[in-house]
């Protein structure tokens, strides 16, 4: 129960952070990417603030804690493989982000703002995740990996 309350509380901080930052606002996100037009550099401050805070905090966590409070170990990705899936997937993600103005971390908290466009994007994104999984297992078969 404490574990769930903790995850819920952390989610609240994440969601409010996203909402305040402007990442949940497609107009702002798209203006950030519009260097040649109505450029709004605000998101540099979001990324910079989040990155520096996390980099410092992670360092302290990994130095001082041998394990997380609610789990037996830290689940940190260990893969170092840079392949076509990573690069192509990231490229596709960036294209979709530039078309819609929503990224996953922006869209989920945006649901709480109560506008009708957000569930449309999220439904399409979830359909994309389901389709992506099916495609990925097929490519894995085809590549024999």
């Amino acid at each position: 129960m404490n574990k769930l309350l903790s995850a819920f509380a952390v989610g609240i901080i994440f969601g409010i952070g996203i909402a305040i930052s402007g990442m949940a606002n497609p107009a702002k996100v798209l203006n950030f990417f519009d260097l040649a037009g109505t450029w709004d550099p605000s998101l540099i401050f979001v990324m910079g603030g989040a990155l520096v805070t996390t980099a410092i905090g992670y360092r302290i966590v990994f130095k001082n804690s041998s394990r997380p409070l609610f789990e037996p170990f830290f689940s940190v990705p260990t893969s170092r493989t840079i392949d076509i899936q990573l690069v192509g997937g990231s490229g596709l993600f960036g294209i979709g982000w530039g078309i819609a103005g929503f990224c996953p971390g922006g869209a989920v908290p945006a649901l709480g703002l109560g506008y009708g466009e957000t569930p449309v994007f999220l439904a399409a994104m979830i359909a994309g995740i389901v389709a992506g999984r099916a495609l990925k297992s097929r490519t894995a078969l085809a590549l024999g990996t």
Binding site: Q85, F93, I99, A100, A131
Partner: peptide, 14 residues
């Protein structure tokens, strides 16, 4: 929104 959402979903899965 729909096209962007689909592409984002496929992209982040890969």
């Amino acid at each position: 929104l729909i096209i962007g959402g689909l592409i984002v979903g496929i992209g982040v899965t890969y």
